[in-house]
């Protein structure tokens, strides 16, 4: 174990941590929003993200970029990025809404047990992974290099590149818009109302089913944008890509207090940074073990997360 790397590469690790954290955050918000309204962990959310990455891949393929060209000029990249980013957002969003209707709605209406909903969600998750496993031929799908990854400028041993800037700035814009949506629109008001008290919301005339659908849509759209950033940054995907990022995103949501939107943001960045620092010391192989250990630790020591409400004993 070499701790000196933490000092020498501090800023490089920190920048990467922020980039990873931003991507995790976009997925993590989906977990937290759905948990807020349904008090249920959407197990298949990681597959919504996976569908987003697949959409990015196919859109880019469709436009004839197969992987051996030089990076695009910036304006062309911007156009293409907006195209596959929005495509992924739409596809993921719609997929999330369909998922809710197929895997959860009937069970919710019937008042089925938590266990039933969980099993249904896990079934849906496996179904999606395997379907895409077949479609993709169980291969890694490599994304072409669309944007130059040459160093723009150097800062304290950290190499700042365009793709990292894109992720951080792009995610910041999305978080800003999300904040507006939650606090200044009728939809946001509805989501907050249902999160507070579903029964009272029904009495107040909120159409709970519609709010739940919109919540899944919102979570899916965010995961879709997240998948576009992911593809630009990591440049590869596969059918089970969602599993590990799902665990990270879920851990981040728990870390911030699941159900709490701001908490998911802070939790994601904290986790992203922590992952980078620990992998630098322990080796990249153990990154996921570290994430898992954090998850267990938080759940045991402070299950309400850093900003959460008391969910362990919601009500008698």
């Amino acid at each position: 174990m070499d701790f000196s790397i933490l000092v020498s590469d501090f800023w490089a690790l920190t920048i990467d941590g922020l980039v990873v954290g931003a991507i995790i955050a976009l997925v993590s918000l989906g977990y937290t929003l759905v948990y807020g309204v349904l008090r249920l962990i959407n197990f298949a959310h990681s597959e919504i993200f996976m569908i987003g990455t697949m959409t990015c891949y196919w859109v880019v393929q469709r436009f004839g970029f197969t992987g051996y060209e030089d990076p695009l000029p910036l304006w062309k990249f911007a156009g293409l990025f907006l195209l596959f980013g929005f495509a992924a957002a739409v596809v993921s969003g719609v997929a999330a809404v369909i998922l809710e209707i197929v895997a959860y709605r009937r069970l919710r209406v019937l008042g089925a047990s938590r266990l039933s909903s969980l099993i249904s969600a896990i079934g849906a998750s496996f179904f999606l992974v395997e379907v895409f496993q077949k479609i993709s031929g169980a291969k890694n799908l490599d994304f072409p290099r669309l944007i130059s990854k040459d160093t723009l400028f150097e800062f304290q041993n950290a190499y700042i590149t365009q793709d990292k800037l894109l992720v951080i700035v792009g995610a910041a814009v999305i978080f800003y818009i999300l904040n507006r949506v939650i606090h200044h629109t009728k939809l946001g008001l509805g989501i907050r109302a249902v999160s507070q008290d579903e029964r009272a919301s029904i009495l107040m005339g909120v159409n709970v089913n519609r709010i739940i659908s919109y919540t899944f849509l919102l979570g899916g759209v965010l995961a879709g944008f997240g998948s576009a950033f992911y593809m630009v940054f990591y440049e590869t995907t596969k059918a089970n890509v969602g599993f590990l990022i799902g665990i990270s995103a879920f851990t981040a949501a728990v870390l911030g207090g699941i159900g709490n939107v701001k908490g998911a943001l802070y939790g994601s960045f904290a986790l992203g940074l922590f992952q980078q620092y620990t992998s630098a010391v322990l080796g990249y192989n153990w990154k996921d073990v570290v994430t898992f250990v954090i998850l267990v630790f938080v759940l045991l020591v402070k299950p309400t997360g850093l900003f959460g409400e008391a969910l362990q004993k919601a009500r008698v």
Partner: peptide, 20 residues
């Protein structure tokens, strides 16, 4: 058999919905 996991996943969703 190549599709068994797809089938198993689907089965879990369907069973929970119609015959939990």
């Amino acid at each position: 058999s190549d599709y068994r996991i797809i089938f198993f996943g689907l089965l879990m969703v369907v069973m929970m919905n119609i015959r939990p």
